[in-house]
Design a protein around this nucleic acid. Sequence first.
DNA 1: ATAGGGTTAG
Length: 678
Amino acid sequence: MRLKNLSPQDLKPLLLGCRHSALISQIHAVMVSSGLFSSGNSNAQLISSYGRAGDLESAHKVFDKISLRRVDSWNAMLIAYSRNECPVEVVNAYKQMVFEGVKPDSSTFTVALKACTILQDLEKGEVIWEKVVECGYENDIFVGSSILNLYAKCGKMDKAAIVFEKMQKRDTVCWTTMITGIVQSGKGREAVDLYRRMQKEGMVSDGVVMLGLMQACANIADTKLGLSVHGYMIRRALPMDVNMLTSLVDMYAKNGELDLATRVFRKIPCRNTVSWSALISGFAQNGFAVNALQLLIEMQLSGLTPDVASLVSALLACSHIGSLKLGRSIHGYAVRKVIMDQVLSTAFIDMYAKCGLISCARALYEHIGSKDLICWNTIIACYGIHGHGREALTLFQQMKDKIEPDHATFAALLSALSHSGLVEEGRHWFDVMVNEYNIKPSEKHYACLVDLLARAGEVEEAKDIIICMEMKPGLAVWVALLSGCHKHKKFLIGELAANRVLELIPENTGTLVLVANFFAAAKVWDKAAAVRKVMKKAGMKKVPGYSAVEVNGRLHAFLMGDTSHPQYEQIIGLLCNLENEMKAMGYVPKTEFVWQNLEEEAKVKVLCYHSERLAIAFGLLNTAPGTRLLITKNLRVCGDCHEVTKFISVIVKREIIVRDVKRFHHFKDGICSCGDYW
DNA sequence: ATAGGGTTAG
């Protein structure tokens, strides 16, 4: 059929459904020749059609030719810009329209506010809102949900709530916008409360609100609620597309329900990179690094290319297990295949530092052009765990002239100063944080300060700080005080701290062990026995200490006293030889680090089988002379192993890096980077 | 007069 034979009534629907610029211009031509243009809103329709087809130039040509532009022409142009992701043009056109005296309507405001949301321009958005009120559209739910979303995306949930409560009518979108906004501001609990209110008011839920609710379940770590959301979606037969299923995977994974996450994941018919990343990140964040990395490989085998987010998750896994080889190969991959952005670069900095290569981390950091807050915080924290408190402080000084430090910056700084024993600096910068930056210290900051002071023996001052805290002191601060008291044999204050720790019912076995050891050292035998009894009764097992070492790209893990290894005989043989050499050099086993009640001779044996020593010996046996070793340990390194590693580094002439749960110990030529202060 | 404009996973 030829276009020219069509009547004007037939042309219009054709125009509406048309997505091809060339065809639109043909219809356009017919409309011109048949004189259809004098009538009404044809221009608006043409602009809209060109916009939908992505041809902004033609849309603009039509718009420019209109002599008297009414709202619908302006709206069509604004929508065309909006559809083609040109928020700046939307805002400019809006301004021009108002300037020319055309009165905007509901659509105008909706589109203009959305543009402000994309631009994160709260100020302009609020100017537009004034106009909304002036034109009497403040009760329009489309405009209303737009302003709610603007506030939400700009992190102003308090302002959003004010508008929301004033609304006379609310539809599902309004509720959803609020619920999602509240979740994303980190308040999962409040989001769930709002959802309950929504149900009470008889609103029907759809898939989108479920997405928000699932985020909330992940946020507040409520698996039970998550399960009921999942069940609800099944009962209501809400369409389960990839997004929905991926959200379920994410929710279960964040709650540590990796079995459930995997089961849902396996049911997704057409997985995309987001689905994979959700699962990979779940495994990585729950400490299953090897599984995370296996999944990354499986993802590639399935034909998908990892993107930034999936790589960041995998890198986190490498950091966890200290797998430099895998981290490096991901780096090589990223350089070739992915655009390096700030987030990914920061993940690499973290990975190199956590795999022992602080200098590589630094080099990468120097390469980043403009550094954001997270990047600064990361490098400061990296120097901290490596025991370079001075360097962390120098970086902090550079940072504060360029960008505003936040609570995490100070947490990293204080912890760095604490690990290096920079007591005076610690006191000073804590004060600066409170008084100059007006950052209210959190429990974490207090724990750093108490740790810093107590570790240095200033337990009186540390205790006074805890007593003056504005919030109720939690486990972290009391444990910090207790371990300082234990180290410096300050039994009086220590006993106070130990009793507070017990009152708070610690679930961590390591904490209870500390309490028991402290009471034993203070010769409060009955209490020491009582704590051990509690542990036994609760069936608390000591977290098995293990150490891992990477040899030829494979990770080898050793449990304490592990006799199952095929090279066990050789490992023990080597350790015996080393021990004899050490003794000749003046080493005396520090049996006070054995907390079991054993004969002296047996204690020496226990020390000998500490997992880090097995890992070191294995590394020595299976790598070329001179190769640097990186050992990762899941608990703290004991004082005796620390001493032994210093000796070994001299005897075998190797650099040995031991990363324990808190920080790095870099042994070289009989010296440790921590200066024996940890 | 009608359609359209607002919420959507790692």
